[in-house]
Design a protein around this nucleic acid. Structure first.
Lengths: 218, 218
DNA sequence: TTTTATATTTAGGCAAGACTAAAAAAATAT
DNA sequence: ATATTTTTTTAGTCTTGCCTAAATATAAAA
């Protein structure tokens, strides 16, 4: 149906649209895909012809209904495979991204239907990201960034914003994973750092960490 | 490591080497891959430079140790994924080939190690074909073609030579699958057809069928 | 507003992997 | 042994998806 490159562009644009509202710029796509702006221009012209996004020269792009559907489906496959890798093959959550990047391009409706069922139709992937349903609809949640939580409040970790292996390994070292209860004991206003409690341990985390952890307040 | 196209050529050549001894011809490769001889020449020259096969102009090719290893690994992945699809996702044995053709190219040693363990380190795929181990070694079996079995002997179906969906669906209709006991009641010499018994049913099968079913005699 | 900087697009090329058409080698037939 | 057929290779093209360099549009600064 679509080439690997096309699917990757649609996925990247989908993510960029969710991070920041409005049109997505050529440069932003190039940066997120580690490619050159000129290559991006080539591809978005091709995708515009296929009606997967709307494009006006110098004005950035926006996915069409169809483009959103295709992108969401790739993301659905990516996240379902991540669940498979973690739940069934016992991979750790910091090891699954690259493999899922490959598996997400396997073409078979039936495969995904059955995989979803085999996994018990999960709503979230191992990093707490929601899995779109067949129609591309995401389950919305009440999640907030840990950095938005006030002193003396507490929350349960429900996901990560960044999911680089480095960050996930840091979280492991601190014994933080999906479902972990976190209490905010103190907050420095000048640099956004925090003192938090996880289990019996109390420790310092930087603003960068607090801004990449999603929690649900209790 | 290797491109999708390279892996597919190596796999095709590996199979051709096993079907008929000696060098594999350009035309044979082209036919088995549904491509043009000139394309094959291009690719085998490239693979020869990479030392995956030996090639002399007009003389055909032969895989090197390294080429065999790479091909066997692709086949190992293909067959393991087929087991997964049938055993875990409840696909039928005639539905899994195309999907496994895609999955076989996923690059991750660790993935295959874990998948193999998850599946209980199977020795055979759903069609009865042996799964190479990590080193490319196939478990040898005593299987013979049903067509070689004499009247009044019996055997257990252990695999199929052809695994087209059409043939597998024919076998289903006749209630023949891996593990099914088959008794040869009669054999026509002039056309190679047979009368066989499967469970309580007795019926006629053509030479073509008998030549594509592997059995182990009892 | 004019200049400067930044973002984007165009033009032209490259590599992979396919193709067709034509040339050359090998195999087969006379 | 020569002629014919078949197989294989070479030469030249095409498409996809990327690149660099140069041109152009937009945005920011003076």
């Amino acid at each position: 149906m679509f080439t690997l490159a096309e699917e990757n562009y649609l996925k990247a644009i989908f993510h960029l649209e969710h991070d920041s509202a409005g049109e997505v710029s050529t440069n932003a796509i190039a940066e997120s895909m580690d490619t050159r702006p000129s290559s991006v221009t080539d591809m978005i012209q091709k995708l515009a012809e296929k009606k997967l996004l709307t494009y006006k020269r110098y004005k950035g792009v926006k996915l069409t209904k169809e483009g959103i559907k295709v992108a969401a489906n790739v993301i659905r496959k990516h996240r379902l495979w991540e669940v498979f890798l973690v739940e069934k093959l016992n991979f750790h959550w910091d090891e699954v991204h690259e493999i899922a990047e490959q598996l997400e391009h396997i073409q078979s409706e039936e495969l995904i239907t059955r995989l979803d069922k085999f996994l018990g139709s999960p709503d979230f992937d191992p990093h707490g990201d929601p899995i779109p349903d067949k129609h591309g609809v995401l389950k919305r949640t009440e999640k907030r960034l840990l950095s938005e939580i006030e002193k003396n409040q507490q929350g349960v970790c429900v996901g990560v914003k960044e999911s680089s292996a480095e960050f996930l390994q840091y979280l492991d070292k601190k014994k933080i994973s999906i479902g972990t209860k976190i209490s905010v004991l103190g907050k420095e206003f000048f640099d956004g750092s925090m003192i938090i409690q996880v289990g019996a341990d109390q420790f310092f985390i930087s603003k960068m960490v607090a801004e990449n952890l999603f929690v649900q307040t209790l």
